[in-house]
């Protein structure tokens, strides 16, 4: 709110009136280049800006829908929901935050896992819902991730995870920290059995998710220009007290420093991962 609006007594303030003249949702502004784009065209382009190539953040279900073959996805562990073991309360109750996030997103928690097909290959794919409490990892995220891994073990099929998360969920305290160990241990089982796991890091992936399963891929793949790191840039800036180099913690920076294997455009994702997985599993190119 500007200083002038603050000055105005609330009774003469008109709130909630949109200045937009066009019907809502028809047009969208690209956060990358500020171009005004026709939304239907954006969607056809998998939410990648046709002008500047900016990869917009997308939700978990949309992610799986554009990644898996049509109508092949069957959800895993969809009944799990968050509990509140610590009866956590900050300025708001954790319970209320959950309810609010569930209403807002239509999801029970921040990770959706599905068994499905990619170009006819069976696999399990997991995707984060970043708009659910910042894609934070609590017990449900950890358990769903592990149940996804268990399906891979059972059917001997590859695992792909699309990460987008701010890290561990503080409201579940040490329970959420332990999910880092739990998920990583499950990946140890996959590795031992020679089942490929590919981690796709999307904007943003930081904290406890980045410091566990998101970095443990047999191949780590990043979407262009995604923010990826352990600590958030603000925390680092406050700690080292210098301005961060240009492009710091972006996909291109990580590729340069040897942290990710490749940067893949969202529109090439299916093709690239299908090729990669088929080679790793000694199959013909689908």
């Amino acid at each position: 709110m500007s200083w002038f609006e603050k000055l105005m007594p609330s009774r003469i303030r008109t709130e909630g009136v949109s200045k937009r003249a066009v019907p809502e949702g028809l047009w969208a502004k690209c956060p990358g280049c500020s171009a005004i784009l026709y939304r239907a065209e954006m969607e056809r382009n998998l939410d990648v800006c046709p002008k500047c190539n900016h990869h917009n953040r997308i939700g978990a279900r949309r992610r799986l829908e554009i990644f898996l073959d049509p109508d092949t996805g069957v959800e895993i562990a969809e009944n799990l929901g968050p509990s509140d073991p610590l009866k956590f309360k900050d300025t708001k109750k954790y319970k209320d935050r959950i309810i609010q996030a569930q209403k807002q997103t239509g999801e029970k928690d921040a990770l959706v896992v599905m068994k499905g097909e990619l170009k006819g290959m069976d696999l399990v794919a997991a995707a984060f819902e970043f708009s659910f409490m910042g894609g934070s990892m609590g017990s449900v995220v950890g358990e769903r991730f592990v149940q996804g891994a268990n399906v891979c073990l059972e059917h001997n099929i590859p695992y792909v995870c699309f990460a987008a998360s701010g890290g561990a969920r503080m409201q579940e305290s040490l329970f959420s920290l332990m999910q880092m160990a739990k998920t990583s241990a499950a990946l140890g089982k996959l590795a031992k059995r020679g089942i490929p796991y590919i981690s796709v890091l999307t904007d943003p992936t930081t904290g406890g998710v980045s410091a566990s399963f998101a970095m443990l891929g047999d191949a780590n793949v990043a979407e262009p220009h995604a923010l990826i790191g352990f600590a958030g840039p603000r925390v680092i800036e406050q700690t080292v007290r210098e301005t961060l180099p240009d492009g710091f913690q972006r996909s291109e920076f990580l590729l340069e420093h040897g942290t990710v294997d490749m940067i893949v455009d969202r529109r090439e994702m299916r093709e690239t991962l299908a090729n990669l997985l088929s080679i790793l599993t000694h199959k013909a190119r689908p």
Partner: peptide, 20 residues
């Protein structure tokens, strides 16, 4: 440590690898 060098050398990966 949340530092520039630590990020460049893969703080996340180092932690994750140990867990596994």
């Amino acid at each position: 440590y949340p530092g520039i060098g630590a990020e460049e050398r893969g703080q996340s990966e180092a932690i994750a690898r140990n867990l596994l």
